[in-house]
């Protein structure tokens, strides 16, 4: 039975992410655990880190759960479990985020999270925008519209950016390195595109 842990570290909107994963599941027997308990994270076959809000408060939320960060690192690095960060959860994969004075990320994909400039367009970048695949990656559905809401963007190495989007500037829509991936958009809110993306994650064998 596939066992997915959705990390609950106080960062909002777990129902939608949970329901999105359930709907997207190719099998009916998906076991979904919503938890911040290191034991649950280490038990899971796949791990999802959601995120709504600010980098700094999410980073603090992660660190205030005893053993959580260590469990994530062990699951990802030692056990090679597929790991997906969503929105701020994607940004937390980076080394550092500059929002609200700056704070450390999970250091799973090299990069920094910086304020968007968007060439003077209104911020946040809020709404449906095209996601363009840059490579043939098993996580990526055919190009489509996904729902974004953010003012900060991942600034990492080109080799880890597998899809991009454009709003005044071009920025990573999906990053991936080995068994770790992150989506700047909200797949659980992104209609058919988002459901296809989540299904791909549940079937991903990195």
């Amino acid at each position: 039975m596939p066992n997915v842990c959705l990390i609950d570290y106080g960062a909002g909107n777990l129902h939608s992410a949970a329901r999105g994963l359930e709907r997207a599941s190719p099998t009916a027997d998906l076991k979904l655990t919503v938890s911040a308990d290191p034991a649950d994270i280490l038990d899971a076959d796949r791990i999802v880190l959601p995120g709504v809000g600010a980098f700094a408060s999410c980073s603090e939320g992660l660190r205030s759960r005893p053993g959580l960060e260590e469990a994530v690192h062990e699951a990802v690095r030692e056990r090679g479990r597929p790991f997906l960060g969503i929105c701020v959860g994607m940004q937390l994969l980076a080394d550092w985020g500059e929002e609200h004075g700056g704070s450390r990320g999970l250091e799973l994909i090299p990069g920094r999270v910086k304020a968007m400039k968007a060439d003077g367009l209104r911020l946040p970048h809020m709404g449906w925008n095209d996601v363009s695949s840059l490579t043939d990656h098993p996580l990526l559905p055919a190009n489509g519209d996904a729902y974004f809401v953010h003012s900060f963007a991942f600034d990492g190495a080109d080799e880890h950016v597998i899809a991009e989007a454009t709003y005044g500037e071009t920025f990573p829509a999906v990053v991936a390195k080995d068994n770790v991936a992150g989506a700047q958009f909200h797949p659980e809110k992104s209609g058919a595109y988002g459901q296809a993306f989540l299904r791909n994650f549940l079937e991903w064998k990195p």
């Binding site: 909002g12 709504v52 809000g53 600010a54 408060s57 701020v88 609200h100 946040p124 809020m126 809401v149 953010h150 003012s151």
Partner: peptide
């Protein structure tokens, strides 16, 4: 609110 949940929310 914006410090707690992010301005985008």
């Amino acid at each position: 609110a914006s410090l707690a949940v992010g301005a985008q929310c």
